[in-house]
Amino acid sequence: MKRIETIQKIVESGVVAVIRAESKEQGMKIIEAVKKGGIKALEITMTVPGAVDIIKELSEVYKNEDVIIGAGTVLDPETARACILAGAKYIVSPSLNIETVKLCNRYRIPVMPGIMTVKEAIEALDYGAEIVKVFPGNAFGPSIISAFKGPLPQGNFMPTGGVSLENVKDWIKAGAIAVGTGGDLTKGAKTGDYELVTETARKFVEEVKKARA
């Protein structure tokens, strides 16, 4: 049931915040700012120094809050297992690694593998991925979602890469079940403007709601 609940929360939120940072300290500040803006699904990428430790710490800090901590840029099953043991509630990959998908299924943890073709999307569905990550989204644009939905109406697609405040509506209207966003969401962190990160997060949530309405 927890797996289903996690997926439902991601879909309800509509936005997964992709957290990339140059240090643990910056990462924690970004996370708090994004959470304050109303985004509940936080994806801590393995490119952040000490990412697994951050996941473990956040999972403990927010265990009684309506926030779901996941791991991103997970390239292999070994890393996926380490993240799951640290408390990650979902796993996101930039590509389709079948062994990673199988491991996550074994432990009933939602996994969102990255795909670029219909063939990869079908393979991901075959192995039980409830949400398929379209990456990099900016290589295609929102029309790729409706194109995938043609032969695969049963697929749940989440674009990441190139999703901005300007085009998030287009992605949702094209059929995306949710979006992943990083650079456009957290750009304020580069200058230490975490209030901008919070405001941007709030706007993303609002734009998704408007698009769905």
Rank of each mutant, 00 (worst) to 15 (best):
V16C: 05
I19N: 05
A21C: 10
A21N: 03
E22D: 14
S23L: 14
E25I: 06
Q26W: 10
K29T: 14
V34T: 08
K36W: 05
G37M: 08
G37W: 04
G37Y: 05
I39F: 02
I39S: 02
K40S: 15
A41H: 08
A41M: 12
A41I: 09
L42Y: 01
I44T: 13
I44Q: 09
M46P: 13
P49Q: 10
G50L: 13
G50D: 12
A51V: 11
D53R: 03
D53W: 04
I55H: 03
K56L: 07
K56H: 04
L58V: 04
L58D: 00
S59M: 03
E60A: 15
E60T: 15
Y62M: 03
D66T: 12
D66Q: 13
V67P: 01
V67Y: 02
G70N: 00
G72H: 11
G72Q: 11
T73A: 10
T73C: 11
V74C: 09
D76V: 07
D76F: 06
P77Y: 05
P77V: 07
P77W: 07
E78M: 14
A82N: 13
A82S: 14
A82W: 09
C83M: 08
I84H: 12
L85T: 15
A88G: 01
K89E: 11
I91R: 03
S93F: 09
S93Q: 09
S93Y: 09
S95F: 15
I98L: 14
E99N: 15
T100H: 12
V101C: 12
V101G: 11
K102Y: 07
K102N: 10
L103P: 04
L103W: 03
C104D: 08
C104Y: 06
N105P: 06
N105H: 07
N105T: 07
R106N: 14
Y107R: 13
R108M: 13
P110G: 06
P110W: 00
P110L: 05
M112W: 09
G114I: 04
M116E: 11
V118M: 03
V118L: 06
E120V: 09
A121V: 00
E123H: 07
A124F: 01
L125W: 07
L125P: 04
Y127P: 09
Y127T: 08
G128I: 09
V132Q: 01
K133E: 08
K133D: 08
G137V: 00
A139T: 06
P142R: 08
P142W: 06
A147D: 06
F148Q: 03
F148P: 00
K149A: 05
G150S: 15
P153V: 03
Q154H: 14
N156V: 01
N156A: 05
F157P: 01
T160Y: 01
G161R: 02
